[in-house]
Amino acid sequence: MINLTIDDKKIEAPDGATVLEAARLARIDIPTLCHDPRMKPFGACRLCIVEIGGLPRPVTSCTTPATEGMVVVTTNSKLERLRKTTVELLLSDHPNDCMVCIQAGQCSLQELAYRYGLRENRFKGAVRQHNRVDNNPFIMREQDKCVLCGLCVRVCDEVEGVAAIGFANRGFESDICPPFKKDLDCEFCGQCVAVCPTGALSGKMWAGQPRLEQTRSTETTCTYCGCGCNLTLHTHADKVVRVTSRPDNHNRGWLCVKGRFGYEFIASPERLTTPLIRRQKGGPLEPAGWDETLDLVASRLTAIRDQHGADAVAGLASARCTNEENYLFQKMFRAGIGTNNVDHCARY
């Protein structure tokens, strides 16, 4: 354990913690833009600067390890002036399109602009120009809104292991793009979209749909594969309009292309919404109610077991069900029917 003082508060932080982590443990607020605890610190946005006793100039708390006896100041007029200038500089090279931007309400930059009350800008000047190349099916890139926090580049490299995008050029003309400024051609996992603090990256299918704030969220599990990633379904008027995932779950908020973007089937008219029963041999499948269906299944299973013994029945489930569902399924077969003939594609 390390003992340090932050804003006059005595704090205990675990060994290896950064100053930012220590402050967050103690619920002390420090603004950040390029930080995500799931990735290596980058130190680029300069918003998390703090003063540390004995050091001649402010340092970034996200990169500085906490040390025993350290005395940290996270806010004073000097630090706030520097932060405000930084945000003002960012906004001077930004379309300030919040009114029609998908990220409004969720945007870290918008939040900072609000926090520092930046209605006017002292630094109006040239802005970066970008040619949009977006023929890919999933991801919209509006690089003029990019603050170059590097989160997308880092997630694609460090987490996804793909490195489909990277930094290009330098200085004011710096850019995030696929090699040779081509269209994105990658896994389309959307991890980059998920970590982008601004509206620079977004899902194409989200455009014009209600913003996140307008939606209701439901926690659930992805039905696509045995990984069982946790999902948050965002619905509006009973329609799923976006899927996200929380960083504090077992998949740490990471999803794949199916989980993140493959949600349109939920509202498909071709999807079955009631059970179907074939009442006559050779006859059609007819919609039925759940009571009728479950009664039918129960009575047929009981009849088979009574006539041929429990081992005449076998149950096959799916890895795409949740653990809880599969648990209940095997319980029903073992305790309810009395057979061990139960299996699924990922094995019990």
């Binding site: 130190g43 300069r46 500089l89 630094f123 000047g125 330098r170 004011f172 710096s174």
Partner: peptide, 21 residues
């Protein structure tokens, strides 16, 4: 310096540009 800024951090990337302007 504006041409040689690596572009990583905000104050230098945009700040030197604005100073030059």
């Amino acid at each position: 310096t504006q041409e040689e800024s690596c572009g990583k951090c905000v104050p230098c990337r945009i700040g030197t540009k604005r100073l030059l302007e």
